[in-house]
Amino acid sequence: NLYFQGLKYMVPGARVTRGLDWKWRDQDGSPQGEGTVTGELHNGWIDVTWDAGGSNSYRMGAEGKFDLKLAP
């Protein structure tokens, strides 16, 4: 699974964008943008601060869902 392989790169400072299971509307800005991981992966959740200004926790394994992917 590509998403599980990418988890080791989901570290503080990593750049991310919305992924396969995104369901959080425009939390990442409008139009959709990139963000920066600000915390360690914990119980399948990870913290992100978006360039647009907001921050929140997103699923990276929790509930079998992956809200994020590494930015290109």
Rank of each mutant, 00 (worst) to 15 (best):
L70N: 04
F66A: 03
L68D: 00
W22K: 03
A14M: 09
A14E: 05
N1S: 12
N43F: 10
G19E: 03
K69G: 07
G19D: 04
Y3G: 15
V48S: 00
D67Q: 03
D28C: 06
G44N: 02
T49D: 09
G13V: 03
K8G: 10
S57I: 10
N1P: 13
P72E: 13
I46S: 00
S30W: 11
R59M: 02
W50V: 00
P12H: 09
F66K: 03
W50P: 00
R25C: 15
R59K: 01
R25V: 11
F66M: 07
K69L: 13
R18E: 01
G33D: 07
G13P: 03
G54K: 08
A62E: 03
L68W: 01
D28F: 04
W50Y: 01
K69T: 11
N43A: 10
N43M: 12
E40R: 12
G39W: 04
W22A: 04
W24P: 06
L70Q: 07
E34C: 15
G33E: 06
G35H: 00
P72Q: 13
A52H: 14
T38H: 07
M10H: 03
W50A: 00
L20S: 11
W24S: 07
G54F: 10
G35T: 01
V16G: 01
P31E: 09
A62G: 06
E63K: 09
L68E: 01
L7K: 08
H42W: 10
K8A: 12
G44F: 04
V37W: 01
V11Q: 09
L2W: 10
G13T: 03
H42L: 12
L2M: 14
F4L: 12
G19Y: 06
L68A: 02
L20V: 13
G33L: 07
L7D: 07
W22N: 03
G64C: 15
E40L: 13
E63R: 08
G13R: 04
L41T: 06
G35Y: 02
G54C: 14
Y58K: 01
G44S: 02
G53E: 02
K8R: 10
D47H: 15
E40A: 14
L68V: 07
M10I: 10
L70I: 10
Q5Y: 12
P72S: 14
D67F: 04
S30R: 12
M10V: 09
K8L: 11
R25P: 08
Y58P: 00
F66S: 03
W24Y: 10
L7R: 09
G64I: 05
A14R: 08
D51G: 01
R25I: 10
G53N: 03
A62Y: 14
R25H: 14
D67S: 02
R59C: 02
W22D: 04
K69C: 15
E63I: 05
L20W: 12
